[in-house]
Amino acid sequence: MDTLVSVHVFAAVAETRSFTAAANRLGLSTAMTSKHIKHLEVKIGARLLNRTSRKVSLTEAGTIYLESVQSLIEGLEEAEARISQTSIKPSGRLKLSVPVWMATPQFAHLIRMFHDQCPEVVLELDLSARMVNLVEEGFDLAIRAATSFEPGLIGRKLGDVSFKLVAAPAFLEKHGRPQTLADLNGAPYLAYTQVARDGKVRLPTSTGTTEIAFRPVLLSGNESLLMFAACEGLGFSLMPAWLVDEQVHSGNLEHVLPDLARPVAPLYVVYPDRSYLPAKVRYFLDFLVKAVAAKQTFSPDTIGQA
């Protein structure tokens, strides 16, 4: 058994505190991950990890060993990344966390474009409402509509995401079309739990910011569900334009107060701070930035033009 591989496996288990998480990160089975740790412990002659049914922790010997090999691992990774900058084609698995609302034809189009350029890279996409821990969970990148990031992460701005206040035409016919932002106070609202669980939404205006106190009737961390509920006439919802534009164009949803409610949020691609990025990460970063610059992103009107 390759001892150097076993050292990498040990470092991953120590970092994630989990055999399963380390195995997923490295593309190994849990059984093989365990064999690598046993191989290392036999070779060293000391127990490196405490294992229980609930958690994994370092022994005193494991802590000392990890400190000793950490610089070696980082040096090897940096050397590999430096070489990849000039001579290695991007390949392998690229694990990416993206918002639920990016599960659209536009993003699928971008994925196809990237695959055409880098066919040896396998994209593994996690679309969920939760804020993943990039380092502990083995993610290479995350796309987030946010203005601040955890320590140790770098954010590269891709652009701005426009949001639209929408509702079904039948709902507006029944409840009336608001004429001002104040008319929205107390109105039924489909709330994204990560932002407006209580139904309070702050909207930018020409004179500052106005807070609207909606009445939540549905809470969810899945923007797609909120959009479909809005189409069913359940209430108002503030959604990313990229997600709802098709429904607005088809008449299933109506853009409410378009001149008054037009908030935007910065969109960033986030990745762990490293001296050198692996080729697969660097290529994908450059691809996204170029796609945004060419207006092939965040606009349904551009699909099919590339």
Rank of each mutant, 00 (worst) to 15 (best):
S206Y: 07
G208D: 08
T209P: 00
T210N: 03
T210P: 02
E211N: 06
I212P: 08
A213I: 09
A213P: 00
R215Y: 08
R215C: 08
R215T: 15
P216A: 13
V217T: 15
V217A: 05
L218M: 13
L218S: 04
L219Q: 12
L219W: 14
L219M: 10
L219T: 11
L219E: 12
S220E: 12
S220K: 12
G221M: 13
G221N: 12
E223V: 04
E223A: 15
E223Y: 12
S224C: 08
S224N: 11
S224K: 14
L225G: 04
L225I: 14
L225Y: 11
L226G: 12
L226N: 11
L226Y: 09
M227I: 09
M227G: 09
F228W: 10
F228C: 06
F228Q: 12
A229S: 15
A229E: 13
A229M: 14
A229D: 09
A230K: 12
A230N: 09
A230D: 10
E232F: 07
E232K: 15
E232H: 13
G233M: 10
G233V: 13
G233W: 07
G233Y: 12
L234R: 14
G235P: 10
G235V: 07
F236S: 07
F236M: 06
S237F: 06
L238H: 06
L238M: 09
M239W: 02
M239Y: 02
P240G: 05
P240N: 05
A241Y: 05
A241G: 05
W242P: 02
W242C: 06
L243W: 09
V244I: 14
V244Y: 04
V244W: 01
D245Y: 03
E246M: 04
Q247E: 05
Q247D: 01
Q247H: 04
Q247P: 00
Q247A: 15
Q247L: 05
Q247M: 09
V248K: 08
V248N: 06
H249C: 01
S250P: 01
G251E: 01
G251S: 02
N252W: 01
N252S: 04
N252C: 02
N252I: 00
L253W: 03
L253M: 00
L253Q: 00
E254D: 03
E254P: 00
E254T: 00
H255Q: 04
L257E: 09
L257V: 12
L257C: 07
P258G: 06
D259V: 04
D259W: 02
D259K: 07
D259L: 07
L260V: 02
L260T: 03
A261G: 02
A261T: 04
A261K: 03
A261F: 08
A261S: 11
A261W: 03
R262N: 11
R262A: 15
R262E: 13
R262G: 02
R262S: 15
R262W: 08
R262P: 00
P263R: 01
P263I: 06
P263F: 02
P263L: 02
